[in-house]
C-alpha cells in the first residue's frame, strides 16, 4: 500500500530518504525553508502545513536545528503521525536526545530514531545497505521498511531508542579520535584498541542514561563506527585528520566542510560522566588535545600509562 511520506530537511539525508521513498512508489513531499527543484515525483514545499496529510514523517535536520524545526512541526502534526529522525546529534549540555525534543515540542508519540551505517548516497541510489531503527512501535518499523526497505536496505529494529540515539551521537566523536590516531600513523591494532575501549567508555555513560550496552555493540554503535573507519567520507573523519596535522579546532572544523558535533557531544558526556563518577580517559584526553591543552605525544603517553584492568 502506498504511504504518504513527509521529509523535513533537504540536506543529503533528507534528499536520499525522499528519493528512496519515491522509488518505492510512495507519495513524497519534502519540506525545506527554500523552494527547491526536486526530481519527479517528489513534491517540494515550504509550507509546514503540507506535512499534515502525511502518515510517516522523516526529520532530517542537524541536531542544532532540531528544537526550532520541531516547534514548527508541532503546528502540523498530531497523534495520527509517525515520525522518525535521522539526526546523529544531541541537544544542549543536558544531552537531550532528538526524540526528547520532539516529545517536548510536539504531541507526536509514535517516534523512532534511524541510525547505523546508513550512507545517504547508498540510500538514494538503492545500493545494498543496512540500518537500525530504535522505536517502541512495531507498526512504525513496518512503515519504515515499507517506505525505505525492500531488497536493498535491511532495517533492523530495537526498542532501545535512547541507546540508538546516544550510540549514534557518540560514534561521531569516536570517528574524530580514530581519524586523528590514523593520521598520526597508529597501527591497526592501536586503532582497534582505541575503537573498542572508546565504545566501552561511551556505552558506560549511555547505560547510566538508560541505554542498553548491546545497542552500542550493534549497528548503531560499532557497526556505524566500522563504516566510518572504512571510509564512508564523513566530515568527522576529515576533522580528525586536520587536527592531527596541527590545525586548531576552529580551522579544522572549517576544513571538515560540515558542522561536526562530535567534540561538543564529548564535552557534555564528560561533564555528565564526572557527575556520575565514571571514568572517561579517552574522551578527556582527546578533548584536551583538541583544545590545544595537550600534545599528541602526551596524550598517547597518558593513555598508555593508565592501569590496565579486566575487560
Amino acid at each position: 500500500m502506498s504511504l504518504r511520506v513527509g521529509v523535513i530537511g533537504a540536506g543529503g539525508f533528507g534528499l536520499a530518504i525522499a528519493q528512496a521513498s519515491a522509488r518505492h512508489g510512495h507519495e513524497v513531499v519534502l519540506w525545506s525553508r527554500r523552494d527547491r527543484e526536486l526530481p519527479d515525483p517528489i513534491r517540494s514545499s515550504t509550507d509546514i502545513a503540507d506535512i499534515r496529510d502525511c502518515e510517516l514523517v522523516f526529520l532530517a535536520v542537524p541536531a542544532r536545528h532540531a528544537v526550532e524545526v520541531a516547534e514548527q512541526l508541532g503546528e502540523a502534526i498530531d497523534g495520527r503521525h509517525s515520525l522518525v529522525h535521522v539526526s546523529r546529534g544531541l541537544v544542549g549540555a543536558e544531552l537531550k536526545t532528538i526524540t526528547q525534543v520532539i516529545r517536548e515540542k510536539t504531541v507526536c508519540r509514535r517516534l523512532g530514531a534511524l541510525a547505523g551505517p546508513l550512507v545517504a548516497d547508498a540510500l538514494a541510489e538503492g545500493r545494498p545497505s543496512g540500518a537500525i531503527l530504535g522505536t517502541g512501535f512495531p507498526e512504525l518499523t513496518e512503515m519504515v521498511r515499507e517506505a525505505l526497505g525492500g531488497a536493498e536496505l535491511r532495517v533492523y529494529d530495537t526498542p532501545d531508542v535512547v541507546g540508538v540515539e546516544l550510540a549514534s551521537a557518540t560514534v561521531g566523536f569516536l570517528t574524530v579520535v580514530l581519524a586523528y590516531a590514523q593520521e598520526l600513523g597508529a597501527e591497526p591494532g592501536t586503532l582497534a584498541v582505541l575503537a573498542t575501549r572508546g565504545m566501552v567508555e561511551v556505552s558506560r555513560i549511555g547505560q547510566a542514561l538508560g541505554a542498553k550496552e548491546s545497542t552500542f555493540m550493534g549497528l548503531a554503535g560499532l557497526g556505524d563506527l566500522i563504516a566510518a573507519v572504512a571510509g564512508d567520507q564523513r566530515p568527522e573523519f576529515r576533522l580528525g585528520r586536520a587536527l592531527a596535522k596541527g590545525i586548531d579546532l576552529s580551522n579544522a572544523v572549517g576544513e571538515a566542510g560540515a558542522y561536526v558535533e562530535g567534540i561538543e557531544v564529548a564535552r557534555h558526556l564528560m561533564e555528565h560522566a564526572r557527575r556520575l563518577g565514571l571514568p572517561t580517559p579517552i574522551s578527556s584526553t582527546f578533548v584536551a588535545v583538541s583544545d590545544g591543552r595537550m600534545s599528541s605525544d602526551d596524550a598517547i603517553q597518558a593513555l598508555m600509562e593508565r592501569r590496565v584492568g579486566k575487560e
Binding site: 508541532g74 495520527r80 504531541v107 508519540r109 507498526e139
Partner: peptide, 24 residues
C-alpha cells in the same frame, strides 16, 4: 498541544484512519 491547539486523542490509536486495538 504545547502551544494550546486542540487535538483529537483518538488519532493515537488509529491505523490508516481507523481506531484499532494493538496491545504492543
Amino acid at each position: 498541544t504545547p502551544t494550546g491547539r486542540a487535538i483529537d486523542p483518538g488519532g493515537y490509536v488509529e491505523q490508516r484512519g481507523k481506531p484499532v486495538i494493538d496491545a504492543v
